[in-house]
Design a protein around this nucleic acid. Structure first.
Lengths: 212, 212
DNA sequence: CCAAAAGTGTTAAAGCTACACCCATGG
DNA sequence: CCATGGGTGTAGCTTTAACACTTTTGG
């Protein structure tokens, strides 16, 4: 009985770029599925934990370090042979923190999640699952903190929600719900930008990921 | 760079036994952690998918085949060395369907989830996570179908819910919610048992697991 | 006719949705 | 003083929570 599969970690990295939810893809150079776009990932070296490997991959690709990272699913048999398993993660990053490494041959780039090309392996399905989970968790967790800077206006937070959900929200109800659910709190500071009343800055009460 | 870890699948099998939520444990005979109680599991043979491996493990231990099975989490570094990963699943089975294999040396047995001994590896944490997930999903999924026979009375369903949640529910509100959310539907049949009005039998509208 | 569990409806409270006006600032 | 986005309150509606009596059966 054999038991020495290859183990890969795969990370779906999401950000709001140009007012749309986008995912980071890289161009595959090696076989199989060479030439197709795919999620960044790599073989696990058994020296670090799986979470560390996923975090490292994320930092390598984006330079971002204050992120939301969560495990999604582990699957086998993606690569025709069964002797490989893939541990999939997803991450939410603040687009302003990201510096893509454009020098590399695989040319990382952002793609809107609702305009994806046909990707390698089952990556399309994986991204769909991740997006579903993100949408579901928006309602009852602080998952959005990864997409925003440490301090933000309620308007910025609402824009993020609307981008992910794809539908507009009532401004007053949104503010009330965010505050009364103790998800965010005022920092006491405000930001002046333009010919109008300054906006209060808020922060997330907790930045620890909530699982379940 | 090494990449050939051992991969194990682990299954937390839950049932309502004697009016309590219990989990199936086996006695470890091999090293490490010999002598301790642990969740059933085994090395993955790379020939079947991970889901198939978990399902097979479940059937071997319980004989049950109409179950709810869901992947929970994949972790590394349980075994001092990092060169092993464990893919954890949980399952919900109808206690009436279960035939434990008592002949084996590892003596499988049910343990109430709130009276667990100290288990091998991080199995206590794993079970806690599974129970949290089950409680959360009771509210908005058909997850309970695995714990019940194909047809059941609303009272039986409510008992199951109360056992898992650990708190009593209002009988009328419970019935209304179950029916109006289209989670269950009447079969048209009824069951007579004892000196009182017979109870209608219901079934789940869908028995397909809901993820997210 | 008695005991035992099944079945059913209403009322009050809470939460959610929809919606319009005043406030602070820069130019 | 005007344009711009920030900030706030309320009324109607829907959803949830609490609660007690009638029905069907077996003995």
């Amino acid at each position: 009985m054999k038991n020495s599969p290859l183990v890969a970690t795969i990370v779906s990295i999401f950000a709001v770029v140009d007012g749309r939810l986008q995912v980071l893809l890289v161009h595959r150079t090696g076989e199989p599925e060479s030439g197709k776009w795919a999620l960044p990932g790599g073989l696990w070296d058994c020296l670090e934990s799986l979470n560390e490997a996923a975090t490292r991959k994320l930092v390598e690709e984006t330079g971002a370090n204050d992120v939301y990272l969560e495990q999604l699913f582990t699957s086998s048999g993606l690569d025709a042979s069964q002797e490989m398993i893939a541990v999939a993660y997803f991450a939410l990053v603040d687009a302003n923190d990201v510096r893509l490494r454009q020098e590399e041959s695989w040319e990382p780039a952002w793609f809107p999640v609702n305009e994806l090309p046909s990707l390698a392996f089952d990556n399309n399905r994986l991204i769909d699952q991740a997006v579903d989970r993100i949408r579901a968790k928006l309602g009852y967790t602080n998952i959005a903190f990864g997409l925003l800077p440490p301090e933000f206006t309620i308007r910025e937070l609402q824009n993020t929600y609307e981008t992910i959900l794809g539908s507009p929200l009532d401004r007053r109800n949104f503010r009330r719900r965010m505050i009364t659910t103790d998800l965010i709190e005022p920092t006491g500071k405000a930001r002046r930008d333009g010919a109008h009343r300054p906006a209060q800055l808020f922060r997330f009460v907790s930045r620890d990921p909530v699982f379940l």
